[in-house]
Structure formats: C-alpha cells, structure tokens
Write a protein that binds this DNA or RNA. Structure first.
Lengths: 93, 93
DNA sequence: TATTTTGGTTTATAATATAAACTATTTTAT
DNA sequence: ATAAAATAGTTTATATTATAAACCAAAATA
C-alpha cells in the first residue's frame, strides 16, 4: 500500500509533458508551451530531466528556417507513466 | 485542459495522509507513521500544512497516559481531494 | 533514580520547481 | 543596409518545498 510515486513524473509540468506525449504523436517545444502555459526556461529544464531519465526522445532539426525541438515518448517513458498511474491509484481511490 | 493541481495535495506524503483520512475514519499520528513509513518530523510538518489549509482537523488528547494526536478530514478537505482527483484525471488518461 | 520509550515539534538542510537573464538566428520595419 | 523585434530555445539564479536531524517533554521501566 502507498508505494512511492516516481518523483520524475510526480511534477505537474513533467507529468503534463509526458501526458501530451502519451498520445503517441510527437510534439514540439511550442506545442508544449501552448498547452501548458509554462515558461520556456521551465519547459527546457524539465525536458532535459525527462530526456536524461530516458523517458523521452528529443530530436532537434530545422523547420521553415527555424530550429525545432521535437519530443517523443520512449518505451521506458510509457512504462514509467503506466507504473506511475498504477501507484497513484492507491492514493486516489 | 491541464488545470493546475492543488500543490497542497500534490505531495506524496500529504496525499497519503489525506487518502488515509478519506475513509472517513479518524486516524492518529502513529497510524500515519505505520502506514506511510515517513519520519515523525516530516509527518508533523505536513499535518500542520494540511491543518493550516483547513483540510484536516487535529484533536490532541491523552490516551492511556500518553498524548495522542488524532486527525480527521474536513468537508473542505474532502472537496479539495475530489477536485484534485478530477484535475489529475486530465493528466493520466 | 537513571535510562529508555512514546509522542511528538522545531529547525536546518537537501532537493526541486520556476522564472529571470542570456544566446543565437531570422524576420520585419525604417 | 541595419536597427528592432520575433522565434526558439539554454543557462543560471532564486524561491519553494520536502525531508530528516536535532531537540523537548512526559511516562514507563530497569
């Protein structure tokens, strides 16, 4: 009962980012900003943490002359998310 | 979409405490310690925060010659918890 | 009566979230 | 042509928060 919640996912912004990516579609930096309304600095830091953990994949490219940062969830990220949700259920029901 | 999560509840230990109290039964300090395995100092601090927010009621008494701290969730606490769960659902499904 | 146990609180520290300040490139206005 | 503004971020400093260590008081026990 009350297993530890993965601290990497138990953060509003990181959870939102991963939640967005759990659709399976990749999303880019701007979409994350639009949806979450967080500052770019905050998003940048949280993306790096998720990347370092191997939860997301980050692909940098050029799109219409501008740099573009695209994010995609990894298998590890999917498993971590599913595990987080399972653990959380113990707390909220 | 992605409404803010009540920061008072979006904390593993405080969420566990409120979750325990959501049964309706009151629980005392020791039960919280047994269930959560957190340190007394940590629990003490988090209890005060929940009390200050009006989410729980704290009743101090004497039981078998020892001081006893009993906790009970308030109506405000119940509503906050239910709202938290509703908001969380946007993130986890 | 000295020591240990019970039941906590207060305070210091470690970790974390968040925004402010900064960098670099591109577009637009003058 | 070039100054200003917009795009797309990163780095770093600060503010907040979680957590444990240190502490206190009363009761039980050796």
């Amino acid at each position: 009962m009350y297993k530890d919640l993965d601290p990497l996912l138990h953060s509003q912004l990181r959870l939102a980012i991963v939640s967005i990516l759990m659709t399976g579609e990749s999303a880019d930096f701007n979409q994350i900003m639009d949806i979450t309304k967080a500052t770019s600095g905050n998003i940048s830091v949280q993306i790096k943490k998720l990347q370092d953990a191997g939860y997301i994949e980050v692909v940098k490219s050029f799109k219409n002359n501008y740099q573009n940062t695209a994010l995609k969830i990894t298998n590890k990220g999917i498993k971590a998310f599913e595990n987080y949700v399972e653990c959380l259920k113990q707390y909220i029901k």
